Amino acid sequence: RYRTTFTSYQLEELERAFQKTHYPDVFTREELAMRLDLTEARVQVWFQNRRAKWRK
């Protein structure tokens, strides 16, 4: 599977959502995914990776 490349707008929005909550529920993820034209799975994985980065 190829690596997803996020646009700067998508990253800004994902980071903004991350500032609000590190653990968005499925509705929040679905809403973000639709708004950013991504799949909910991509959003979920982004948050997993972002939390890992945050913990370091």
Results as ranks from 00 to 15, higher is better:
R1Q: 15
Y2I: 14
Y2V: 12
Y2H: 13
R3N: 15
R3A: 02
R3I: 15
R3E: 13
R3W: 13
T4F: 04
T5H: 08
T5S: 12
T5N: 11
F6H: 05
F6L: 14
F6V: 08
F6G: 04
T7D: 04
T7R: 04
T7W: 04
T7P: 02
T7I: 02
S8A: 11
S8G: 13
S8I: 03
S8N: 08
S8K: 08
S8R: 09
Y9T: 06
Y9P: 08
Y9G: 15
Y9Q: 15
Y9K: 14
Q10F: 02
Q10W: 00
Q10A: 03
Q10L: 01
L11C: 04
E12R: 03
E12I: 09
E12N: 08
E13N: 14
E13P: 00
E13V: 08
E13R: 03
L14D: 00
L14A: 00
L14C: 03
L14V: 01
L14W: 01
E15I: 03
E15V: 02
E15L: 01
E15R: 02
R16D: 03
R16P: 00
R16M: 08
R16W: 03
R16E: 11
A17H: 07
A17N: 04
F18R: 01
F18I: 02
F18E: 00
F18W: 05
Q19H: 07
Q19T: 07
Q19G: 14
Q19E: 10
Q19Y: 02
K20H: 08
K20L: 05
K20G: 10
K20P: 00
T21D: 11
T21A: 10
T21Q: 12
T21W: 04
H22A: 12
H22V: 08
H22R: 13
Y23H: 06
Y23I: 07
Y23D: 15
Y23R: 11
Y23K: 04
Y23G: 02
Y23N: 13
Y23E: 13
P24C: 06
P24K: 00
P24H: 02
P24D: 05
D25A: 07
V26I: 10
V26A: 08
V26G: 12
F27G: 13
F27E: 13
F27N: 05
F27T: 14
T28Y: 15
T28P: 02
T28C: 11
R29S: 08
R29D: 00
R29M: 15
R29V: 14
R29C: 07
R29P: 01
E30V: 05
E30Y: 14
E31P: 01
E31Q: 10
E31D: 08
L32R: 00
L32W: 01
L32C: 02
L32E: 00
A33N: 02
A33P: 00
A33R: 10
A33S: 09
A33Q: 09
M34D: 12
M34L: 14
M34N: 04
R35D: 04
L36F: 04
L36V: 08
L36A: 03
L36I: 12
L36R: 01
L36W: 01
D37M: 05
D37H: 15
D37A: 11
L38K: 00
L38W: 02
L38Q: 03
L38R: 01
L38D: 03
T39R: 08
T39S: 07
T39M: 05
E40W: 05
E40V: 08
E40F: 09
E40Y: 07
E40T: 09
E40C: 07
A41S: 09
A41M: 09
R42V: 15
R42T: 12
R42I: 14
R42Y: 03
V43H: 01
V43I: 11
V43G: 00
Q44I: 13
Q44A: 12
Q44W: 07
Q44E: 09
Q44F: 15
V45A: 06
V45T: 08
W46R: 01
W46K: 00
W46Q: 00
W46G: 02
W46S: 00
Q48D: 14
Q48H: 12
N49Y: 07
N49P: 01
N49R: 07
N49M: 05
N49D: 14
R50N: 04
R50M: 07
R50K: 11
R50P: 02
R51Q: 13
R51G: 03
R51F: 08
A52D: 13
A52Q: 09
A52C: 06
A52L: 08
A52S: 09
A52P: 03
K53I: 05
K53G: 13
K53D: 15
K53Q: 14
K53W: 06
W54M: 08
W54P: 08
W54F: 13
W54L: 10
W54R: 06
W54S: 10
R55F: 09
R55E: 10
R55G: 11
R55K: 09
R55L: 11
R55A: 13
K56T: 04
K56E: 03
K56S: 15
